[in-house]
Design a protein around this nucleic acid. Structure first.
Lengths: 228, 228
DNA sequence: GTCTATAGATTGATAGAC
DNA sequence: GTCTATCAATCTATAGAC
């Protein structure tokens, strides 16, 4: 061994929960996500991200070798979160339960992960230079299995005959709109963020229109329904 | 008069239809719209726009004094087109006709003005630094009158009771998704643009889900309905 | 690990020949 | 009106002191 290999200590640090490296990387990723979300890859600068993180610009390059590496890590983290939400579309549930849970989860995601949704939107609008392989493999597989499921529902008469692909796009578009166009929505809400009640109401409205739109009875909604 | 004022000739040129200035400005605006659409304001560069237009960079500054001026002209042109589409939501029509026409028009716009829609999306995602006044005045007024109209429909029992604001957002989101996320949609369509038949089918599906979703009967659709 | 200083490339914008 | 050459500012990325 020689003096140029303090590897053991560094690795231990980076693996340990709450280690300096892990904590700083997460902080930088959080800040970078906000900046990339609002300016896109080309519009964001390392200087602005560094300012957001309250760090010297050189520290970003210490943790992430390049701007593209940092961006890639941000996008990959978002895709992981997207996968978790996608899992809430359970293939074993009834049509009503599966659609209701999935829409509610996606609306919740738009509220809690606004910036992640915007980064995804920016990336797709730019032609998905980084995530094209995710679109072609993971997203396509997920979409195909859900379309097959919805088609079986239609064939069995459990929902009205409806093109499953356009239905899925409608759910994606509507739910993600509340994240991607949050600024417009807040401007039209007298400049204020949507309240808890408004989020619940919007979610129930979206669920109601979609369920009735595919021939299902949305019922009285969770609030009224839970009371004895 | 002195030699520094060839104003008469220049103005005549710039006003005449097909004048060099008018033609070049339109060409540059078209190219700039595509670049701003995919990279946003900060991500786009005058060099890339010049390459897209097959012109030296200096020519852009001859016609538009700054990058921001060029961007502002692009955004203002898009807003004008948006206003025309917004007018297709006629306040005098029946609920079914008004919704059907408006959705169809918005879907058509997403197909024919993909880049304009993306510029708008980028601008809103960045917090609308340029168009904030449009959002606060023109868009708000338009939205308020349509919400009032839809509320009257609900009160009169002509449609199911539904929150008009979330319904409008749903229509905006769904139709604009076909422009803003065109790359993702085409990737999931085996890398090909949607065909005429697919656009018709998607439009009818969206109209069908929305109309049923607000308690209306969408009927057999235009194709089947027109045949004797 | 953190930070200042700076290299080398690219940016928006302009000067001036044609 | 068009184009080449260029400026000052800013960008990503790195070197090297601490």
């Amino acid at each position: 061994m020689n003096t140029s290999e303090p590897a053991a200590k560094s690795i231990t640090k980076s693996i340990a929960k709450g280690g300096i490296r892990e904590e700083n990387e997460r902080h930088i990723l959080d800040c970078a996500e906000r900046i990339f979300a609002e300016r896109g890859f080309g519009g964001a600068t390392m200087q602005v991200i560094a300012d957001e993180a309250a760090l010297p610009k050189a520290n970003l390059h210490y943790y992430f070798s390049s701007k593209e590496t940092l961006y890639r890590r941000v996008v990959e983290r978002i895709f992981t979160i997207w996968l978790e939400a996608a899992a809430s579309f359970e293939t074993s549930a009834t049509p009503e339960t599966a659609l209701r849970r999935y829409i509610a989860r996606k609306m919740e995601m738009s509220r809690t992960h606004r910036y992640g949704s915007k980064v995804w939107a920016n990336e797709v609008m730019q032609g998905a230079p980084i995530i094209q392989d995710y679109l072609e493999v993971t997203l396509r597989d997920w979409t195909d299995t859900r379309i097959a499921l919805i088609d079986r529902w239609s064939a069995a008469g459990r929902i009205a005959p409806v093109n499953a692909r356009w239905l899925l796009y409608m759910i994606w578009a509507t739910t993600q709109h509340y994240a991607d166009f949050a600024h417009q929505i807040e401007t039209l809400n007298e400049g204020r963020a949507l309240s808890d009640a408004q989020w619940r109401d919007a979610t129930e409205t979206v669920i109601g229109i979609i369920l009735r739109g595919v021939g299902l009875d949305p019922g009285p909604g969770p609030d009224a329904g839970d009371a004895p």
